[in-house]
Design a protein around this nucleic acid. Structure first.
Length: 210
DNA sequence: AACTCGGGGCA
DNA sequence: TGCCCAGAGTT
């Protein structure tokens, strides 16, 4: 199957119809809360992150408060999220940088965000998109896999796929499309046994059945 | 490019 | 039990 521009448009139309009310699964009440939640979400389900932040944020939901909390106590709070020592170290360092260099605020700047410890390209894109409503597409493993299988965007690195998606997806849909691809990757286009038999995109997917 | 960090989900 | 993850940093 040849994935033309028209086919890609059809793929996107179907995805939108499948996941009409796509929204972030993480619960947060400020850019800082979102930043922490996304750092915690690496290799951890959003449901579990929400449980952890539901306990943590009432105690501390600012860079100053978490810095006061200290690494040892933070490690206990986020223990259930996995990689807790490394994440706690990164979060504490990030809080100090936010206090020292950004007046305790989360900068609405992709480059600045990505320089923070524990914040990579994916996390920075999520914060820009979700917290600051800027056009950005965060490419995680689900987005990467689904985009490649559909040939919606092809690449061997997340950055390549991100650029490819930016070309074929209307700017106003970037934030939503991220969620369509994630949901589809989790529920249907799974890494191991993709459910091609019942996939609504099978007709427009070159990887279907393969 | 390969490895580490650390738990849980799931067959 | 064993394998796989809604990543990022280091070597």
């Amino acid at each position: 199957m040849r994935v033309t521009k028209a086919v890609k448009a059809e793929q996107l139309r179907i995805l939108r119809s499948l996941y009409p009310n796509a929204r972030p699964a993480l619960t947060f009440q400020s850019p800082f809360e979102l930043l922490i939640a996304v750092i915690l979400s690496a290799q951890c389900t959003d449901a579990r992150v929400n449980v952890v932040t539901g306990r943590l944020f009432p105690k501390a939901n600012t860079p100053a408060a978490i810095a006061v909390l200290g690494q040892a106590e933070l490690e206990k709070e986020i223990h259930d999220c996995g990689f807790f020592r490394m994440k706690a170290k990164h979060i504490i360092e990030t809080c100090h940088i936010l206090l020292d260099e950004y007046d305790g605020e989360v900068p609405a700047d992709f480059e600045a965000l990505q320089k923070l410890p524990g914040v990579g390209r994916k996390t920075a894109n999520v914060v820009m998109s979700v917290a600051f409503h800027m056009p950005a597409i965060a490419v995680d493993t689900h987005v990467f896999r689904v985009a490649n299988r559909l040939r919606l965007a092809v690449g061997t690195t997340p950055l390549e796929v991100e650029k490819g998606l930016q070309k074929v997806i209307p700017r106003e849909d970037w934030s939503d499309a991220h969620h369509w691809l994630i949901l589809h990757g989790r529920q249907v286009c799974k890494a191991r046994k993709p459910l091609c038999d019942t996939c609504a995109l099978a007709q427009v997917c070159p990887s279907s059945g393969a």
